[in-house]
């Protein structure tokens, strides 16, 4: 299973390196969202400072929808989904591979977004450990749920509009927990944030487990 996961992840990341969709389209979109928030909320006001963690994760969720759609549109072209079924790959491995590639891309976007937050919103970086751990756990949860709902929507004609409706409500707990953990990290009281990190880790593990177990059936039906 891990061999198949490595193969799929390497393929997805190679496609990204060759097509540069994340770098040329998804990342600029994320930065644009961040700038629009800054325009809407006066940077000198307390409102922007208070809202920064939430705005960061809302921007990440918008990016996630685009990245998941992109990830599964790769498998929809020219009969590729049939070829995946014919290749005899472990479905759990395909899930883990697509999940890993998605997480890598989201983490790259998040690091750039974080730099944008620090510059645009004039925030200080405190609680680096909690910040990094939260980003990893939240991104794992977002990636696992995104991969699962991505394959669910992949076979539908209305997938572009349906995916956000399916995925965003499911990711609401991640949004809340990641925002609270980020608030604690940015306010310099990291100890308050670790329980939220634990929640994120549990969410990620549950969705990774569900994905490994159910991805095969969903791929067959897509």
């Amino acid at each position: 299973m891990l061999r198949d996961a490595r193969l799929i992840a390497a393929k997805d990341l190679r496609i990204e390196l060759r097509s540069k969709v994340t770098a040329s389209q998804i990342l600029p979109f994320a930065l644009l969202v961040l700038m629009l928030f800054a325009f809407a909320l006066d940077p000198d006001s307390q409102a922007l400072e208070r809202a920064t963690p939430g705005l960061f994760w809302v921007a990440v969720l918008f990016v996630t929808v685009l990245a998941v759609e992109r990830s599964f549109s790769l498998e929809g072209g020219d009969g590729v989904r049939d070829a995946l079924r014919l290749a005899g790959l472990e479905p759990g491995g395909v899930f883990l591979g697509k999940f890993a590639a998605l997480v890598v891309q989201l983490l790259v976007v998040e690091v750039v977004l974080l730099l944008g937050v620090l510059l645009l919103y004039s925030r200080d970086l405190a609680g680096v450990g909690l910040l990094a751990a939260t980003m990893l756990a939240a991104t794992a949860g977002i990636g696992a749920a995104g991969t699962l709902y991505g394959v669910l929507a992949a076979g539908l004609r209305v997938r572009e509009t349906l995916l956000p409706f399916l995925l965003l409500p499911v990711l609401a707990p991640v949004l809340i927990a990641a925002t609270r953990a980020f608030e604690s990290a940015l306010d310099g009281v990291p100890s308050d944030g670790w329980p939220w990190f634990n929640l994120l880790a549990v969410f990620a593990l549950v969705y990774i487990g569900i994905g490994i177990l159910t991805f095969g059936s969903l791929l067959e039906e897509s």
Partner: peptide, 26 residues
């Protein structure tokens, strides 16, 4: 199966595609 669809990733090179599907099929 050689179908009407060619089962290829457009954004990968010829060598990338052949290598990926060969390894996928072990």
């Amino acid at each position: 199966l050689l179908a009407h669809a060619t089962f290829l990733y457009d954004d990968l090179t010829v060598a990338d595609n052949v290598r990926f599907w060969t390894l996928a099929a072990k």
